[in-house]
Design a protein around this nucleic acid. Sequence first.
DNA 1: AAAAGGAATGGTAGCGCTATCATGACAGCG
DNA 2: CGCTGTCATGATAGCGCTACCATTCCTTTT
Lengths: 344, 344
Amino acid sequence: MSKDSPHAVKQRRRSDQVTLSQVAQAAGVSPITASRALNHPDKVSNRARRSVLEAVERLGYVPNLVAGSLASSRSRLIAVIVPSLVNTVFVEVIKGLQETLEAEGYQILLGNTDYDLDREYQLVRTFLGWSCSALVIAGLRHNKACHTLLDNWDHPIMEVMELGQGMDLNVGLSHVAAGRCMATHLIDKGYRHIVYVGALLSQDYRAGMRYEGHRAVLEAHGLRAPIVELDTLGSLQAGAESLAQVLAQYPNTQAIHFANDDLAAGALLAAQRQGLSIPRDIAIAGFNGLPLGQHVTPQLTTILSPREEMGRLAATELIRRLGGKSVYRRQHDVGFTLQAGGST
Amino acid sequence: MSKDSPHAVKQRRRSDQVTLSQVAQAAGVSPITASRALNHPDKVSNRARRSVLEAVERLGYVPNLVAGSLASSRSRLIAVIVPSLVNTVFVEVIKGLQETLEAEGYQILLGNTDYDLDREYQLVRTFLGWSCSALVIAGLRHNKACHTLLDNWDHPIMEVMELGQGMDLNVGLSHVAAGRCMATHLIDKGYRHIVYVGALLSQDYRAGMRYEGHRAVLEAHGLRAPIVELDTLGSLQAGAESLAQVLAQYPNTQAIHFANDDLAAGALLAAQRQGLSIPRDIAIAGFNGLPLGQHVTPQLTTILSPREEMGRLAATELIRRLGGKSVYRRQHDVGFTLQAGGST
DNA sequence: AAAAGGAATGGTAGCGCTATCATGACAGCG
DNA sequence: CGCTGTCATGATAGCGCTACCATTCCTTTT
């Protein structure tokens, strides 16, 4: 219990990493001045700044961002949570986010929920633990725990992909309107027996919202709105296989409204292999505006969603907000464009 | 200078975030025991563990991972640096990495170099500053500064995509061998006038390596190995446009060996639109084994690279290494498979 | 000329957590 | 009954950085 021995200094530094103090010493300034020279260059004299930068270079100093974040409780990390990376749609949004955020010195911390809301909650928890500067999350639907957690979080939250009233900021498009748009197009083209085909709608509920729009339009025209739900992820393969299933189930189908372009293109290519004429025998429509749709013959009728732009816009809004500027719009509609091809 | 006044306690906590000490207090244990209860559950008594977990739940405690990382100099972050997100190949590797790493409680810090080695260096610097547990980086070619930085870094480094002698661990395939494989296939099929088409080979140097393999085989057979380099990124569009260019430049071309499937599929679809018969008029081969290749008619001859598996394997090896286990192989060849379709 | 303001710099004390060592309690052992 | 060993717990001292306030040395203002 007696502590008469001036017990040896505890030493814990394991790595021989250069620290800011060493840089400061080499530059002949105090650590705090060295810190300022690097982070607020305009707050120090030219002389100090130069000698610090020179010392950084000479010693090969790499700032410890973990320590910096702890001290300042600002991390310049942006958490990005998406349900899937297989679906290129999310990747394109990430790309838009990334190019904008990296240019501003933010880093992306990427999480993938695999369409599991409990997993999403866990990821949010982890990311909050990293004192992220902001959170970007796909979709407006989250579980209770996740909402509770985020309601008490005082950083910007950006919900992307779909338009609606969210927790904080929102950039997206109306999937219901997109579904209505395509359904209207099909009806205008004279089709009356129209089947909607989606994959795993419980997961990809936005495809379900498009169906709702689709159904509303068809029913307003006194038409039935049958739906076929596939139990595998949307893919060319699934689309190809779905064609036979739809025709068997609804023999007089004139047009198929697919939940996305992968399915639609897969069906279109399969139809061609089977000698079906498009759109004479069967019309096909998709959603997303993937490049592939413009390279098949006939070109795929689809709805173009501005995915990279969605990412860029989300990032821009976040940066504005993080810069302390008031945000003039909490909700931002990026819209969509009907791209009528020869397939309908 | 005199410090006689016992100046007021400095208060810096801004956020009202619950801390581990508060949890400890609520649970009636010391902070360090609370820490152990969460991070080394087997080191504390059942009673302590239970009351800590209960307090965590009750207070809604979210661990501050930044503080934890600083104290322990372990972050459970894995830096992943890729040259592009547009190219789905890298996304698939990331997916393989992610599903394996997240299951082990690691998070991915994602960086995108846009094929710029200086940008790559900057990203590496930043990521080292986050005390990442490991680094996964695409490719074996890096700039001088990057090598210097990483040589002095004492964490695992995993270089993926291509096989070869790297800095530390390596998982990939031999692109030279892949190029040889496809060239051999084309020659076996009887083609003699074969053109290689790549896009931005200075960036996508692995496509250049495939060309080297391709050229070696052709020259061994006494054939010339012309190459056409496009100056846009590989895409369906670029492939479609390249077809005319190749035929104009080398009118008696019998087969085109494309650097990847996007180009090849774009050319194949364009050829069909122009009424060319494949492979009678022109044979087409690609690389990657994208799903699209199996859905066009005729099916695309390509080389299947196991991209997700590459990611999974890289992650598994890293985890093994991070777990302190000795690594039985510093280099791992994931191989490739020739997928002969009707297009050649 | 004195007062007031500003710019550059530094000392100090944390940020919230964990590594390290110390301690106490208790079991097993000759 | 002391000795060693294991287990559970705690006190202390950092991890490397930045916020906060204080100080110094100017320049500007009245």
